[in-house]
Write a protein that binds this DNA or RNA. Sequence first.
DNA 1: CAAATATCCGACTAAAATGGTCGGGTATAT
DNA 2: ATATACCCGACCATTTTAGTCGGATATTTG
Lengths: 155, 155
Amino acid sequence: MKLTTKGRYAVSAMLDLAKNDHGGPVSLNDISKREDISLSYLEQIFTKLRKADLVKSVRGPGGGYVLAREADKISVADVIDSVGEDVDLCCCGDSHSDDEHEKTPCFTHKLWSGLTFVMREYLQSVSLQELLDPEIEFGGRIKIERDTKSSGEQK
Amino acid sequence: MKLTTKGRYAVSAMLDLAKNDHGGPVSLNDISKREDISLSYLEQIFTKLRKADLVKSVRGPGGGYVLAREADKISVADVIDSVGEDVDLCCCGDSHSDDEHEKTPCFTHKLWSGLTFVMREYLQSVSLQELLDPEIEFGGRIKIERDTKSSGEQK
DNA sequence: CAAATATCCGACTAAAATGGTCGGGTATAT
DNA sequence: ATATACCCGACCATTTTAGTCGGATATTTG
């Protein structure tokens, strides 16, 4: 279970962009050097970021990219999604006809959709702005609450 | 971002095992047919489950596998881990010397470790027993609470 | 004992995904 | 005009995935 570099690079690059936003655009060349990601690969990634309206491009010398909106209005989920790093672990196709041969998978379905939900929820809750803030910590300070259908009944 | 079939199959198979536990062992042949997973592939998976002490094997005719402990004492995380489906999204090696050239990644580090934490927490909280219980629902009934270091300050 | 059943084990492999590169374009500031 | 930088599609090597295959070993049943 892993995230591809595309997703990680995209977040790193967007963070770099947010960090070095001094009014004008930031060139991929600069990001490439700072983050140690190949230029061509960055171009691929930014094409997707642009199509998802997360960044705007400025062509020509002195050009580059700028965030399409403020860093606190962009969630990590936005970035991950835009590069096609789908967070979707569901097993059977959504519209799996769950009649007939009654296999076990449909017991697992709620598990995977639950996991997907948890991940999305988390990624949506974190903005680029927050990531740049060294004050904010994450690890160990997260709690998941799972309610069963009717209260009680659970360990 | 995806789970491999190995992880999914492992959970499905373990669930099948829990479900069809009528005292004696369950053969892979049966599981293979019910869950529609190739026998050889199942063997690979169960070798790992056995080495992780999640199941016990009984050889010879009438043999098969049984859960090594009760279904409510086995979490989905146990199963996933045992087949080598690492839930670990951290970017830089853990002991990344974060001195010197100060790249952005170490801002993202807390993000990925936070995500990993959330996923593990969730998977650990679900037991095989619970999955078999049709009463228990998951989707939409999960809440994540993220505390910032000092209270206040967050949207 | 023999035969059938079932776990055990390692090596091998086709197909897909990943993580890029390469070669050219096009817009624009100087 | 030239240099800068974005834009775009095709291509490709490596790795991972998702298995298969052939055989060995243990054990129950007749």
